[in-house]
């Protein structure tokens, strides 16, 4: 494991903690897209199917459990916790899951490294993760008023993707035969989706103003 991969995982972990902090202590999920969170549950559930069959390290298994557990609990809170659910922007969060999932299923069936069940599911999770943030970005655009925790959550998520790209570049030059086009391209697409958000995040940070997206 290199420093970029570790930094990526830690930013990912931090993003989840920020979101849980907002939901658990402030009892609010305002500005958070349930659609995106449900897509993350599907992403982790399909990617970590191998959790009992393949062992890489204690670190990996532990992180898989954390990401599975946290994504499930976030969705549970937003759906079933009365106080949290009341703050959910249901009318604004209208993105259709199938609209994103169907193309990802088809693409995973067509383009994959190996045609096995686990590999196709893994590939599907990569494609779906690439676009899972879209409902969240759409919701931000609609509500426009973004509180600090929600802004930090998305900033950290984008940071995690950025560090993973550095990790792939590092591994490409240091490990023989490390070539994974599917992972790289979907990862790159995912990171690019954050570009616009990052632009306005830095602008608000530079001007020391509250983050607001243009209509």
């Amino acid at each position: 494991m290199n420093i970029f991969r570790l930094a990526g995982d830690m930013t990912h972990l931090a993003s989840v903690l920020v979101l849980l902090l907002k939901i658990h202590t402030i009892k609010s999920c305002a500005g958070v897209s349930l659609k995106t969170q449900e897509l993350y549950v599907i992403v982790f559930a399909t990617r970590y199917l191998d959790i009992f069959t393949s062992f890489v390290s204690i670190y990996n298994s532990l992180m898989k459990l954390i990401f599975l557990g946290s994504s499930f609990s976030i969705v549970w809170y937003m759906r079933y916790h009365k106080a949290v659910h009341r703050t959910y922007d249901r009318e604004q969060d209208t993105f259709r899951h199938w609209f994103l999932m169907l193309p990802c299923i088809l693409l995973a069936l067509l383009i994959h490294e190996k045609f096995t069940f686990f590999e196709v599911m893994w590939t599907f999770s990569l494609y779906l993760e690439a676009v899972a943030i879209l409902p969240q970005l759409v919701l931000l655009q609609r509500t426009r008023n973004i509180d600090n925790l929600t802004g930090q959550y998305i900033f950290l998520l984008g940071g995690y993707r950025g560090f993973y790209i550095l990790n792939w570049i590092y591994r490409y030059f240091t490990e023989p035969h490390y070539v994974h086009w599917i992972t790289w391209i979907s990862g790159l697409v995912q990171t690019l989706l954050y570009a616009d958000f990052f632009y306005y995040y830095f602008l608000s940070w530079k001007n020391n103003k509250k983050l607001q997206l243009p209509a």
């Binding site: 991969r5 995982d9 990912h12 191998d50 393949s54 890489v56 390290s57 990996n60 992180m63 898989k64 990401f67 490294e113 190996k114 590999e119 893994w122 993973y164 990790n167 490990e175 035969h177 490390y178 994974h180 992972t183």
Partner: peptide
């Protein structure tokens, strides 16, 4: 080890 290497990532 017939697993693709990227499966050691999260």
């Amino acid at each position: 080890q017939d697993q693709p290497q990227n499966h050691d990532e999260l």
